[in-house]
Design a protein around this nucleic acid. Structure first.
Lengths: 134, 134
DNA sequence: TATAAAATTAGACAAAGTCTAGAAAAGCAC
DNA sequence: GTGCTTTTCTAGACTTTGTCTAATTTTATA
């Protein structure tokens, strides 16, 4: 499924040169749909065979997000989550635990969208349902 | 409208002791519905008659948010916006300019809501429409 | 293989926000 | 009001996430 070969092709298709560090990071991210922070990824990479510096991890995540391979989720004021599932969906964010979970698209139905301000275009709609332990 | 007297009463009603610093911060925030960062508020306070330290501004904003006087808006990974409009509404966030604007409640209609995870309760739904200059 | 361009690195730096310990202000009983 | 306790405020040190820089290494290409 997510063999090195598939990952390399995925990066190439997105116009990203598949360097050692990028493939390593991609393998971690695309192993399954998940929400990881840059610091978590940095630690995971450096537990593996090859290593990557902090700057490379941050650059790579930014690049992947720009190329549409990742989705940045901004819900926690202290860090960005990178979501390896880029298909349309929404999120629960548990403010007690800091855990982000998915809400499938069909669990929310938005039937009316606002008019955008003059001279702007949409780059995505996020729905975040903040929850806490009851 | 937002005389010192009204502000003092607003704070008291929310169970917040109206100290000099809190009243000063509240007067800035509640002058009109707006989105301000902690740093902006700190600067505004210290241009006025009384002053407040960084720690006090951060503590006060956190307290106001907890008491429901303010709404924290997390859309920009570098800072929290404090929204002095706590009535139900949504937001546009322009990623090119960093400007946050309101979307009236009735401009979006959500007619289906997701089931919450076991043992949790909702503390609010946010809809953020990310936009960029076209 | 030589050369140019792109990517990686360590570590310095920046900015938002938190923490601490002492000082000041507020609340309260008398 | 006076004394006492609790709450609030303060300066500045500190933490954390993320960015920047300048030098090195890797990759692409002719």
């Amino acid at each position: 499924m997510n063999s090195r070969e598939n990952i390399v092709n995925k990066l190439k298709s997105a116009g990203v040169t598949p360097t050692t560090q990028r493939v390593e990071i991609a393998q971690i991210l695309f192993a399954r749909p998940q929400h990881l922070s840059a610091e978590q990824i940095l630690k995971m990479v450096n537990k593996g065979h090859s290593t990557a510096s902090k700057a490379t991890v941050y650059n790579t995540l930014g690049l992947f997000a720009k190329k549409g391979l990742l989705r940045e989720v901004i819900v926690d004021p202290t860090k960005i989550f990178y979501d390896s599932n880029v298909s349309r969906h929404f999120h629960f964010f548990n403010t007690d635990t800091g855990v982000l979970t998915d809400i499938p698209v069909d669990a929310i139905h938005i039937d009316k969208l606002p008019e955008l301000p003059q001279g702007t275009e949409s780059s995505g709609i996020e729905v975040i349902v903040r929850i806490k332990n009851s």
